[in-house]
Amino acid sequence: MNSIWHIIVTSTPQIVAAGLKYTIPIAIISFILGLIFAILTALIKLSPRHGWFSILKAIAYFYVWLFRSTPLLVQLFIVYFGLPYLKISGIFPNGIQLDPWTAGIATFSLNTGAYCAETIRASILSIPQGQWEAAYSIGMTKTQVLRRIILPQAARVSLPPLSNSFISLVKDTSLAASITIIEMFEVSQQIAAQNYQPLVMYALVAALYAVLCSILSWLQGYLEKRTSRYIKPIN
């Protein structure tokens, strides 16, 4: 028992350090990039189908379909281990070689972006048509209506599902262990290999993920309260 306690006390700082250095930055950077992809994709999917927009629309549909229809781990493997073999003479004579950090962030952001795009598209559609008409009536342009009237309301609607996506992403960064990133799960594997205590180590890392995600859930609750001040409370 004493030795287990000892393992926990000595391993926790190492795992937390890996979390601060890799897990959290990868999750945050990927999510921010993912949100940008998601908003662009959602707006393209909602745009009227004419001119060169139909090409963008086709790309947006393909992107969302591709990343939602294949496993994240396989996507990581293709980007990190597969792309170096994509040799196109003239453009990539030596294949596309990405360092683990870039490959990880590219894959995670594109993957989460595909899911969030659907969330954001649905939230924009959930804002009543009358809001568009009222804003158009005071002479706003489409961009102004989106930025000032629709997106702020859609942001509130999409907060719970987007928080879900972010929490999933935080846990999914454990897959980065497979492309040589020494994040929380990888560190716990390395320690387990030395001390032959896989149960203790994996339970410990699970608990640390749980702590991290609980903090995020609490943050979600706080943000929901902040952004819902204008809504009539349901009694």
């Binding site: 009358g130 809001q131 008409e133 009536s137 005071i138 702020p152």
Partner: peptide, 23 residues
């Protein structure tokens, strides 16, 4: 769209269900 915007600036609209911006 320029004509549309100019015209909408010269007209105000009030709707049956108000359509105030709730946020």
């Amino acid at each position: 769209s320029k004509t549309v915007l100019e015209l909408r600036r010269k007209t105000g609209m009030v709707f049956q269900d108000y359509n105030l911006f709730p946020h």
